[in-house]
Amino acid sequence: MINFQYLRTTVVKTALGLVSKDPKATFIAGGTNLVDLMKRGVTAPEKLIDINHLPLKQIELKNNILHIGALVSNSALAENAIVAAKFPLLMLALQSGASAQLRNVATVGGNMMQRTRCGYFYDTTMPCNKREPGTGCGAIGGYNRMHAIFGTSASCIAVHPSDMCVGLAALDAQVVIAGTKGERKINFVDFHRLAGTTPEKDNNLQKGELIVRLEIPVNNLNKHIHYLKVRDRSSYAFALVSVAAALEIKDGSITNVRLAMGGVAHKPWRLTTAEAFLKGKTATPANFEEAAKLAMKDAKGFGENDFKLKLAPNSIIEALTIAKSKA
């Protein structure tokens, strides 16, 4: 690793100024992904701006909207009483990710910014359009068991590795972004991008911009919820697929529903068609199966990950079934 320059600040504006003007500068928060990538030579910033001392650590409910500072750690968010009471789906998603040690350090903003775990992305000797545009995609025609089935492109089939983000995608969160010219707000589901022809871009953040907080509107989805993560070992592994499911059921019929998946796309994958189908229907196994089938429209396997075409709908059904059963 290059002996980069290290600067620390307590002021958001200063941090923004330092990174926006310097193409070789980047922010560091928890560092659990960035330091890893720097050790592997995947990225080599020459200047790190330590943002851990910025005042972005609040978790507060204002006008029925939960505000979460970008520097709140994953564990602090998972342990928060408001989150446990009002957004248990987010709590479960957070608890499914990484390990206790990593969650203690990894921040909300950093979790959103984490790069894919694709082995070709991590190995600098292999082709990867995300790491080095134009070199090709190693995973297509290679080892792609962990890879995407939705929204793929000819240049990249990597998946976004976050669990937290799957929960947030289901919860209609919004992302507040600060830039040198002020703040802007975008829907969480629009934050991450599909690979398209620019897989090097994971999300729609511009150079020098910083995630400062999330806002989640309070809902009634705090009872019939489940986060199902299917993985190769029982914990501390990335998802083969994961499903965030939340139902609001009145008199046996579904009045509100949220479904999102992880491990299947370049971004957290919201299942809007399946949601639309389920809304107003009764919470029955047959309807869950139909919803899962609808969710899989346009899914495409790449050989080793063909099993996801079966695992994904099965997981949707299982997550909905468990969510329904929760009292």
Binding site: G119, M126, G142, Y143, D232, R233, S234, A237, F238
Partner: peptide, 28 residues
């Protein structure tokens, strides 16, 4: 869980780390 996966096109392992070569954890 355990399998070291080699990409035969390149002769290189693609999961040569503890996150992707899965040895059992406590929960297993």
């Amino acid at each position: 869980t355990e399998e070291a996966i080699l990409d035969n096109r390149y002769g290189r392992y693609v999961n040569n780390n503890f996150a992707d070569y899965h040895v059992p954890v406590h929960a297993d």
